[in-house]
Amino acid sequence: MEAHCKEAIERRGFVRIDDTIVLKYRKADMNDFQNNDGRLSADMSSFTIKARFAAIDQKLRPVRHSLEQRSPELLTYLNAIDEKLNLLADLAFETEHDLIDLPTQEVSLSAGGTSFLTQKPLELGTLLELWLLLLPSHAGIITYANVIYCKKINDNNQLYPYKVGVEFKNIREEDADLIICHVLKKEADERRRRSKLKVR
């Protein structure tokens, strides 16, 4: 894990960005939430497999760095295995979830929560089951979230006239870390893009 990513993870929840992701949700059953200690049974579906891979990669980064110093050939071999596993993960996801047909939308995203537009208002305190697909990595996160605000927007958006803000509830620590690193990478990419435009 890069140093700036580690530092941001320690400041969990303070890093936020406007982003384009795939998002879907449904109202959750509070009884299921309480009976399962706030954990989702769908947490290990093919939708989340890339996120699970990313969490494992983060844990193994010190080992990988050591291997890079000792045996570049072994590291090359392990990278090839990683590539094969990612290809299989993409295939499993696309087969089950039909990636091409999933719509994207603009959100404001942090490790603590997100905001997005909806067709209908949601009551404050509503518990949601939230599915987030980060792009372009296709890392999927499934978590619970509480609605903390819902307001009607005045920008002539007739299809999605409401803006909803949610706070993640019992999100896996690895998923929160993944969001932070995703946000930082997006910020770095945007800075590079702006720098190139200035050079021109």
Score class of each variant (00 low, 15 high):
His4Lys: 10
Val164Phe: 00
Asn35His: 09
Arg172Ser: 12
Gly113Cys: 09
Pro103Gly: 08
Ser46Gln: 11
Gln69Ser: 14
Leu102Tyr: 04
Val107Tyr: 05
Ala54Lys: 03
Ile153Thr: 14
Pro103His: 09
His138Lys: 13
Met30Leu: 14
Ile142Thr: 07
Cys5Arg: 14
Val63Glu: 10
Leu40Ser: 03
Ile142Ser: 00
Arg26Phe: 09
Arg200Thr: 09
Met1Gln: 05
Pro136Glu: 08
Asp37Ile: 01
Thr104Arg: 12
Leu178Trp: 00
Lys169His: 12
Glu96Ile: 02
Asn86Asp: 05
Ala55Tyr: 01
Asp57Gln: 06
Gln158Thr: 15
Glu2Leu: 13
Ile142Tyr: 01
Val15Met: 03
Thr76Trp: 11
Gly113Asn: 04
Pro121Gly: 06
Leu109Ser: 03
Met1Gly: 07
Glu123Asp: 15
Ala188Thr: 08
Leu197His: 10
Val164Gln: 02
Val147Met: 04
Ala176Leu: 04
Val147Trp: 04
Phe116Met: 13
Arg16Met: 10
Asp82Thr: 04
Ile179Ser: 00
Ser110Met: 01
Lys24Pro: 07
Glu167Val: 04
Leu60Phe: 07
Ile180Asp: 00
Leu132Arg: 00
Ala55Cys: 06
Gly13Ala: 01
Asp43His: 12
Leu40Asp: 01
His182Gly: 03
Asp177Ile: 03
Glu68Arg: 13
Lys186Cys: 12
Gln105Asp: 13
Asp101Ile: 08
Ile21Gln: 07
Tyr25Gln: 10
Ser46Cys: 13
Glu83Phe: 13
Leu87Trp: 02
Cys5Ala: 11
Leu122Asn: 01
His65Ala: 12
Cys150Phe: 07
Lys84His: 11
Ala54Asp: 13
Thr143Ala: 12
Arg172Cys: 09
Lys24Val: 04
Cys181Ala: 11
Thr20Ile: 12
Val107Pro: 08
Leu134Tyr: 02
Thr143Gln: 06
Asp32Met: 05
Ala51Gln: 02
Leu127Tyr: 01
Arg200Gly: 06
Phe53Asp: 06
Glu106Asp: 11
Lys152Gln: 15
Ser137Leu: 05
Ile49Cys: 03
Pro136Tyr: 12
Phe168Cys: 15
Glu173His: 13
Pro72Arg: 08
Glu167Asp: 05
Trp131Gln: 12
Ile9Pro: 00
Glu2Asp: 14
Ser71Leu: 04
Ala145Phe: 03
Ile171Gln: 05
Asn156Met: 09
Leu23Ser: 04
Val22Ile: 14
Phe116Ala: 09
Lys27Ala: 12
Gln105Gly: 13
Arg52Asn: 01
Glu106Arg: 13
Gly140Phe: 15
Glu173Phe: 05
Ala51Val: 01
Asn154Ile: 09
Ser66Glu: 14
Ser195Met: 13
Arg191Leu: 15
Ile171Met: 13
Leu88Trp: 11
Thr118Trp: 04
Glu167Tyr: 04
Met30Asn: 11
Leu128Pro: 02
Met1Val: 10
Gly112His: 02
Ile100Val: 13
Leu127Trp: 03
Asn170Met: 10
Met44Ser: 15
Cys5Lys: 07
Asp82Arg: 01
Ile100Pro: 03
Ile180Asn: 02
Glu129Val: 09
Cys181Phe: 00
Val164Leu: 06
His138Ile: 08
Leu99Asp: 11
Glu167Gln: 15
Thr143Trp: 07
Gly38His: 06
Phe53Thr: 06
Met30Pro: 08
Ala139Trp: 00
Asn79Gly: 11
Leu91Ile: 12
Gly165Ala: 03
His65Asn: 14
Cys5Glu: 07
Ile21Trp: 10
Thr114Asp: 03
Ile17Val: 14
